[in-house]
Design a protein around this nucleic acid. Sequence first.
DNA 1: GAATCCTTGATTGAATGGATCGAGATTCTA
DNA 2: TAGAATCTCGATCCATTCAATCAAGGATTC
Lengths: 153, 153
Amino acid sequence: MKLTVRGEYALRALTHLGLRYSPKVIQISVISSAENIPKRFLEQILNDLRTGGFVESRRGVAGGYRLAKPPEKIVIAGVIRHIEGALAPIGCVSENYYEKCNCPDEARCALRSIMKEVRDSIAHLLEKTTLANLVTRAEKLKAADLADADFVI
Amino acid sequence: MKLTVRGEYALRALTHLGLRYSPKVIQISVISSAENIPKRFLEQILNDLRTGGFVESRRGVAGGYRLAKPPEKIVIAGVIRHIEGALAPIGCVSENYYEKCNCPDEARCALRSIMKEVRDSIAHLLEKTTLANLVTRAEKLKAADLADADFVI
DNA sequence: GAATCCTTGATTGAATGGATCGAGATTCTA
DNA sequence: TAGAATCTCGATCCATTCAATCAAGGATTC
């Protein structure tokens, strides 16, 4: 699994929306400047997240984006699969994006067997992590940071 | 972590050499046809593995490649790092190939914290796996396959 | 010294990734 | 109902990476 900038932006944008989860929508430009993401590019990514059913949008003057379901229901593995594709490090061990490799005999391939373990460990971690979890982490990290600041003063 | 075809070939070639570990060298063309790897490309890859200290070569008529050290001493994580680069799914959590990301505050980044866990789990698996381990897997898979064949007869 | 094989670097062609643009659709508001 | 704000969608661009091939050259052995 490799997270490209695109996937990173997607997850950061979702976290932004998760931290402010409400029926109100948030504009692209707000997310763009808060998260330091090129606006045009983010536009593309949010639209893609909409297609995937992770966010929903509202057009027009008071338009913007919001989560399509509560943060607890948004699984990180699902987001990454939608944006980036396979979690597996190599196609021949992917469950959702299987691709045949050109080794002489896949069933007897030692490389495949170790890569399968890698895939499983990645998938296990990301399947059990939801956006709610990311949001909690973000809040805790912020709180810890504020505590540090107090301490310094 | 993403394993490209290049890395796959490298590990398959090493496994080939590991299964036949001896002072004798094996020709590129032999590995190439046994493992179904384009010869010219394999040439490039083996040369790269030589630079990394994983194999050594012998020129001339009876030339070829062999492992530069016993299979137990060749760690898969090291091979992948040399051929592909970082194990981490994103640069900002890589230990050996760190790259700054453009998020507003790296220390408070929730994404970073979950990706760090992914990195650690990948690294842990691949650090403890040696070529000797891969070779053993290959032998077992072959044996199991033969047993199946017997059973069918 | 000829055959064989490794060495090195250049090159190519395709795919991917990051990013931008422009025109269109939709919604609100004055 | 005109127009401004905002999302929508497809096209395009540029740089980089990947996979693969090629060519010339050097080393080694028989």
